[in-house]
Amino acid sequence: MLEARLDQAEILKKVVDAIKDLVQDCNFDCNDSGIALQAMDNSHVALVSMNLQADSFAPYRCDRNIALGVNLTSLTKVLRAAQNTDILTLRALDAPDSLNLVFESQDKDRISEYDLKLMDIDQEHLGIPETEYAATIKMPSVEFRRICTDLMALSESVTIEASKDGIKFTCSGDIGNGSVTLRQHTNVENEKENIEIELSEPVALTFSLKYLVNFCKAAGLSNTVTICLSNEVPLLVSYALTSKAGSNLRFYLAPKIGD
């Protein structure tokens, strides 16, 4: 059986909120190392991958591999009943037809309990190759969201160029064109404001802004976002879910290539 207790319901609420417009139904794959989710959007352009390691929960118990087939719209309805600061416990049997969710207020004066019906989802699992990215950018997540939404007002695509001069986001549309350039920046007093750029070779790739703006719904999960690029491979946009390494929400986006 599965029993997983999260100290803050906020994490799961925000994860589901961030991905529910990209993915409708997906399996939460539970095993002794934690809970993972992988799903593509309907048009197979983007891939969402979530990992919540067992050490993100206390306690965490999962004796066998369990796939929880969940409709995210339904899960959203149930999670709406949880306050951000509630303690959230997920429970399921080994071959479950429902997922039990318990929300407890921090001072334990309210306990809510819900059962969510599960579904059988036959989902393809994709192997994501280990990639040494040519460019890695770590920046404030709200700043990345602002760049994407600002550029989407002009165009449906953005070209991201990484060079020794910095990271340049360029778009052009019917009303005109625009660009934003980021340079490495260290704020000694407020590390969250830092922009860190690691570059091993120049990169230039074009992506759909509609998807990038969608990924930015995860900005509430983490102050910083990590963006990884290599020529002719999908872009990786990654948000840390907890302070523990390995628990993250990742989005991969296939590029636009050629004319």
């Binding site: 393809e124 190759p129 165009s155 999908p234 290539i257």
Partner: peptide, 14 residues
Amino acid sequence: TGKQQSILGFFSKA
């Protein structure tokens, strides 16, 4: 602005 690629062209089915 280029042709949208599919993620399936990059990641193989496990």
